[in-house]
Design a binder for these strands. Sequence first.
DNA 1: GCCGTTTTCGGCCCGACTGTTTTCAGTCG
Length: 578
Amino acid sequence: MNKIDELAQAFTYLAELLEIKGEVRFKVNAYERAAELIRAIGDEIFEKDNVKELRQFPGIGEGIAKKILEFKETGTISKLEELKTEVPIALISLLQVPNLGPKRAKLIYEELGVQNIDELREAAETGKLAELRGLGPKAEQNILEGIDHIENISGRMLLHKAYEIQRDICSLMSEALPGLLINPAGSLRRMKETIGDIDLLVGCENSRLVMETFLSLPITRRVIAKGDTKSSIMTAAGLQVDLRVVKPEQYGAALQYFTGSQAHNIRVREIARKSGLKVNEYGVFTVKDNRCIAAEDEAGVYAALDMAFPKPEMRENQGEIEAAIEDRLPALLELADIKGDLHSHSDWSDGRDDLEGMRAAAEARGYRYLAITDHAMKLKIAGGLERERLIEQVHAIRELNARGDSPVVLLTGSELNIDNDGDVDYDEELLSLLDVTIASIHGGLRQPREKITKRIIKAIRNPDVKIIGHPTGRLIGQRAPYDIDLRAIMRAAAETGTALELNSFPDRLDLKDENLRQARDLGAKVSLGTDSHRSNQLEFMFYGVAMARRAWLEIDDVLNTMGLDGLLEWLWAGRKKA
DNA sequence: GCCGTTTTCGGCCCGACTGTTTTCAGTCG
């Protein structure tokens, strides 16, 4: 775990231990917000070295600023260490059990001495939980099911998986109830990279009928909760799906309410309160006489608060509220702005489809160009192209382009390997044949921070390298990012005019949203590529664009929104062309 | 703990559902 995550986690622990201890809600909230904020800001936080600078960030006051400085100095926070002697840190693990919160965790610890999940299970199975005041057999059963859930389910689901499931459920519901007004809400609508559960929102007068239909879907394994307006089910795959029903004339307010994020909504409601208004899932109301002034239209909810409409992907309380108030929200990148894909593989290396198949798929997407960036020779395992094969491929691509039977121009290219010394596979002469030169790390992933950072920066300074592929190497939920000085890499990329990739393959999404925003702020260009190994994977661009939108990127921040001529000019700037 | 053209003190978002309660606390999002 890197320093930023450690610091953020220290504040999360502070919040959770205080919560178990029974500290006032607001103090706990402040620490939780601090943890969130630190994760969003990233390494920049360690570049500040006094209280005053740290307090510039809204949500960081004197107390938290001092704790950040203490952590930077000593690697720990004394208040946290103190707290650990009062409340066993292991108790925090109990909080991840659904249906078990801080109050009951404290009770269970104090009455039964339970400190971890194994002990919790034993207490539940022997009926001891049901004997505690405020709990009963049902609560005990729910906690047992909660334990089963976290032990069987490996955390959160990748966005693209959840998105597909959502699409399936919505179409099943629409089949049963034609014309139904139904949409995803929650983190799925915000397009977070991973999804904990799926939130769906329906606008319909007949909520009973909607609920019946939903609860009898074939995907339902267990009904968790069912009420007049809200139900939850567990699917066989262990995914929770929540469905809310509101009246059609309240749909906009409900969509706003259930899209979140929680931090965004809290800010919105605070702002409403200051104007004598109240916001809930049924509309915007005056506090004085409870008169509804907006509800049907989501943008109308924001308008009632004198705010511009922030797109769902932005709603993380990362400055979008202020921007909406001041009417300076960015014009986010759209999928339609993407003129082509800059990272794809064909059957010349480890892809499945041939050049024509890839080109046809690009044409179907309305692209102007597609870069064929098969693996370079040092990556033998992926069928990396030897010199002669690469030359052959360049000729094949040129021939295909010369036929003039497609609006899509294939760009020659390669996904080069950054070796241990920071050099790439081919010599200058061969590179002078390639339009698109991506350089990626494929080996030595666990080297020390200085070493990998140095390798990448050397590649960035190579005039023949125009794009750094999957810059952090993370695989969501499987492999941590390389230990690198990302900000130094971003600065070097900005300085040399090298693009950083937003690899849009679903389990990569690399750079991730907050890093993309940092890259843009530091002046680096972003290149969207799907890393497709099959022609149908070009559709992953959808998820890359979603990440770009979460990072507030606009057209000019992204390389492949350029037309073909502009792009080629950019790609060949400062390079020798054969 | 944070924050301030209504406050340097006194506020701090909102509601549904469940299970255990005879009117509400705990949990969740």
